[in-house]
Design a protein around this nucleic acid. Sequence first.
DNA 1: ATGCCAATGAATGTCACTTTCATGATGGCG
DNA 2: CGCCATCATGAAAGTGACATTCATTGGCAT
Lengths: 143, 143
Amino acid sequence: MKRAKKKVFADFMSQRGLKSTKQRDIILDSFLSSDRHLSIEELYLKLRSKHPNIGYATVYRTLKLFAEAGIAREMQFGDGQTRYEHVSEGEHHDHLVCTRCGHIEEFENETIEKLQDEVANSRGFLIERHRLEIYGLCANCRK
Amino acid sequence: MKRAKKKVFADFMSQRGLKSTKQRDIILDSFLSSDRHLSIEELYLKLRSKHPNIGYATVYRTLKLFAEAGIAREMQFGDGQTRYEHVSEGEHHDHLVCTRCGHIEEFENETIEKLQDEVANSRGFLIERHRLEIYGLCANCRK
DNA sequence: ATGCCAATGAATGTCACTTTCATGATGGCG
DNA sequence: CGCCATCATGAAAGTGACATTCATTGGCAT
Ligand SMILES: [Mn+2]
Ligand SMILES: [Mn+2]
Ligand SMILES: [Zn+2]
Ligand SMILES: [Zn+2]
């Protein structure tokens, strides 16, 4: 899975004539090792301790590349930061977001997806993508 | 409906000890006369021709007040601008957003809402709110 | 090893808010 | 009414998260 995404990214890079660099390798490793929905700043700070020589701009640009390569997706959860999450080819999920602790949980619901198609069809819309986020208190924060 | 929201706002203002001003009256009128999902900038520019004496900051603050009073809702559709839409007590709807022309259409689907409740329950989440946006091409832009 | 071109990162720019502050209005009270 | 404590206004300045610039560095094909 981690290996597979590294290959997808490597292929994307060579196809675009872009170069492999130490920074990109490190950032990709760090990104894939985290299962959270990371902001640029968070990933930058995470790297900073072990790799003080990697700049914010490089993290920013590399995450953009991940998104272009199809191994990451930009998300907005309304906290003012863009977050990048892992995605795989053909995979899709939506989110439950805790408004207290920031915990993000993922879910898939085929029936909801179908109903969305119906809504779009009835209005003549051609769906490109959608976002469904449920905000509230996670099980832990309800206690 | 327009009258009702004006009353809601007037009550909110007096309850908070805030004052009635020409600017606020004009902005409220203009906001309620528009059925679109307006950004601050858009409403500001719309007003500018007839009321060049109303500043951006006043439009900004007044829209915030509308949201606090419960007659408007802040929305993000990913175009980099916060949009304010009309809301009424107890009303809810989701959106279809055209990625070409920016057209925004509203819909309600009780079944989707129920399924969301089920998803949240199964994870122990207590729902506060949700957002469902379907992005794609509107009927007009598909032609 | 050489040279072209991409990559890096410190610095700077951008943009959409958001706040400040000097000045102007509102409205309760006598 | 007329006062005046408060609130409101808007030009200007500040903020924060991205986005870009540019001098320098570093891949990598030859
Ligand atoms: Mn996710
Ligand atoms: Mn709407
Ligand atoms: Zn939580
Ligand atoms: Zn359209």
